[in-house]
């Protein structure tokens, strides 16, 4: 018995290593494809990056010099592979908008988005899943109707509108939350940057004033993001649950005398965890792309804002860098979902 189990474990570990090798190859190819597509699209858009650098009053000689300096005179394929080489060495190039290395910029803007998105998805999951389960187990009741209308609102209300109204009501009107930005000016630069996540950095040095100020600033935008993912997650949870509650094994559980709350959470909810992970993972990845609307309304220095600025300025290094980050987020979240599937669904093992 012991030996048999060990053999099984060894085989599992072997399988995992092979799986990991395959994963690395697939990931590398995905990144290469992602870079290639972004790179070539960036080169064919009718915006001249050289002009963006030298300005429109430069002489032809200055223009040509800048063009050679930026390496844009070489064939596209050569440019692409030299870019890939630099990326492999960890160099994402200079941003022409901020005049700083793109890697440094990303290390600054991505945590701002990560913090807001994580709080948003937490709100969405912690409230959305129970709401959806509740609506499904009370299908057709007035509560179900209210939840459905609420979820529909989350689909149809524009984010910027909700952001502006939220600011007008809760910041300007009631004064319950702090305004735009990540911190009040007074608190800025008080805590050393380690992770770039305000809440974590301030908690690490035990500066609770900064912590609560950061939370105050996060509250409104994160709640609004949370509302959108809540609406989506609740709708999906409701429909997954309705599907399961109609199955025969639910009747079996009731025949056994299992209490209703356990029929719902212990039986019907278990199989829907797998599709829910996909829904939650994709919502989270969507939030991590950075909501340009919310970031603009709340002057949030996140990746959505950064990417939009870079696009408008034809700042291709920044665009490519940000795309890489977003691509990695999607690949990572997909991989985590895959692992969770296998843990939660015996049929996929």
């Amino acid at each position: 018995m012991g030996l048999a189990t060990e053999g099984l474990n060894l085989r599992r570990i072997g399988g995992s290593i092979r799986g990991l090798g395959g994963f690395a190859v697939v990931t590398a190819l995905t990144f290469l494809g992602l870079l290639a597509v972004t790179f070539f699209i960036g080169r064919v858009v009718p915006i001249d990056p050289v002009l963006a650098v030298v300005g429109d009053r430069a002489t032809q000689a200055q223009y040509d010099a800048a063009r050679v300096a930026m390496g844009l005179d070489r064939p596209l394929v050569v440019q692409f592979f030299s870019y890939v080489g630099e990326v492999l060495r960890g160099d994402l190039g200079q941003s022409i908008t901020t005049n700083r290395p793109v890697a440094e910029d990303l290390a600054r803007v991505f945590p701002a988005t990560l913090e807001m998105a994580t709080l948003g998805i937490l709100i969405g999951v912690l409230l959305g899943v129970p709401t959806g389960v509740w609506a499904a187990s009370h299908q057709g009741s007035w509560i179900d109707q209210v939840i459905r209308v609420f979820a529909l609102m989350g689909y149809s209300v524009p984010a910027f509108w909700l952001g502006l109204v939220g600011l007008a009501v809760f910041y300007a009107g009631l004064g319950w939350v702090a305004g735009p930005g990540r911190l009040d000016i007074f608190y800025e630069g008080l805590v050393p940057t380690r992770t770039g996540l305000m809440l974590v950095d301030s908690a690490l040095v035990g500066d609770w004033q900064v912590f609560f100020n950061a939370l105050d600033h996060l509250a409104l935008p994160a709640t609004i993001l949370g509302f959108f993912s809540l609406a989506y997650i609740a709708r999906m949870t409701r429909s997954f649950m309705l599907d399961q509650l109609g199955q025969e094994y639910i009747t079996t559980a009731r025949v056994k005398g299992v209490p209703e709350w356990r029929v719902i959470w212990g039986h019907a909810f278990k199989p829907i965890r797998v599709p829910l992970i996909t829904v939650i993972g994709l919502s989270y990845a969507g939030l991590l792309e950075g909501s340009v609307m919310i970031e603009t309304v709340f002057s949030w220095p996140g990746i959505g804002n950064y990417l939009t600025q870079a696009l408008l300025n034809a700042d291709m290094n920044a665009v490519l860098g940000a795309t890489l980050v977003i691509g990695s987020v999607f690949i990572l979240i997909n991989k985590i979902s895959d692992v969770l599937y296998r843990v939660l669904d015996p049929r996929s093992r």
């Binding site: 094994y249 009747t251 039986h267 939660l344 015996p346």
Partner: peptide, 8 residues
């Protein structure tokens, strides 16, 4: 159909 697919 009458046994829960994700419970032993």
């Amino acid at each position: 159909f009458s046994l829960n697919p994700v419970m032993t």
